[in-house]
Simulated scan of single mutants.
Amino acid sequence: MPGRGIPGPEHWSRRWADAHPAYRWAPEPPGPPLILRERVGALHAAVSESDEAAVLIAHSAGCITTAAWAANHTGPVRAALLVTPPRIDGFKPDDPSDIPWVTPRGKLPFRAVLVASRTDPYTTFEQFEQLAEDWGAELVDAGDVGHLDTATGFGPWPQGERLLNELR
């Protein structure tokens, strides 16, 4: 699940999707703007396409999509890699008919790893710690990596690939 923007060709998530034809975007870029209802629907459709348990990979607002989906749906999901979820409580939806962008705080019904940055511009490390606790996720301190995107130097992300392999 992508974040707010469309991941460019150098972004680690785009690189992973390009390298693995079986990976699916939810929503497919460019996808809708930040309309949570549509993003949750796209995730539900992708998870529902197969009986095989999925491993979800989410960056930024995609992490909130994952938590919102898990709060209201079930499906064959083995685990999730949640990378630098933003603090979005109070965010005004792009579409007034959308559901509120409030971070669900319930425990996720599958194994989750939350990757946190000590220098993320959208979330403090303490907020990452609280989200990991709320979601029942393992917290991985990635250090001073900003928002873990191309703007902060992340095209390739070998540590992320190792974390993903551990979730399979």
Rank of each mutant, 00 (worst) to 15 (best):
L34T: 07
W69M: 07
T66G: 06
R14T: 15
R24Y: 00
R4Y: 05
T74A: 15
I88E: 01
A42D: 01
A58C: 09
P27E: 02
H20K: 01
T65I: 02
A112G: 03
S117R: 10
R39T: 03
A19T: 15
P30G: 06
W25F: 06
A19Q: 15
A53C: 15
D134H: 09
T124I: 08
C63I: 06
W69Y: 07
A68C: 03
C63F: 02
L163W: 15
S117P: 02
Q159D: 15
P96A: 06
N165H: 13
A79D: 06
P32C: 12
P85V: 00
L43A: 13
S13A: 11
P30E: 12
W135H: 01
P21C: 10
E52F: 06
E38Q: 14
Q130L: 09
H11Q: 06
G5L: 07
R111D: 14
L56W: 11
A79N: 09
D144L: 05
K107Y: 05
F128P: 00
P100I: 04
R4V: 04
E129S: 03
G90P: 02
G146K: 10
G136R: 03
G160V: 11
K107C: 05
N72A: 15
A45R: 15
P93N: 04
L108M: 05
V115M: 14
A80K: 10
R4I: 02
L164R: 11
A116R: 04
Q130K: 10
T119N: 13
L164A: 09
A26N: 10
A54W: 10
H20P: 00
I64S: 00
E166G: 15
R24T: 04
G5W: 05
R118F: 07
W25A: 08
R14C: 08
V140D: 14
I88S: 01
I6T: 15
H73K: 09
G75F: 12
E10R: 14
E52I: 09
E126N: 10
A71V: 07
E28W: 04
A54M: 11
Y122E: 02
T123D: 00
R168L: 10
E126Q: 14
G153Q: 12
R168V: 07
G155H: 11
L131R: 03
A116Y: 06
W12D: 04
Q127M: 02
C63P: 00
L164V: 08
R37S: 10
R168D: 12
G160L: 08
L163H: 14
A70C: 11
G153A: 11
N72K: 13
H59V: 08
D149Q: 04
A79L: 11
G136C: 08
F154R: 05
T123I: 00
Q127L: 03
W135E: 00
A142P: 03
V140S: 12
E38C: 11
V102P: 00
R168M: 11
R162A: 15
F154T: 07
D98F: 02
T124R: 08
S48K: 13
D144C: 05
P27G: 05
G146W: 11
V40F: 05
T65Y: 01
T152V: 12
S117A: 14
D51I: 02
A142K: 11
G106S: 13
P29E: 10
A116H: 04
T150R: 02
A17S: 08
I64Q: 00
A79F: 10
Q127F: 01
A17V: 13
P30Q: 11
R14M: 12
T119V: 13
R118M: 10
P100T: 05
R24N: 01
F128C: 03
D94S: 04
L163C: 15
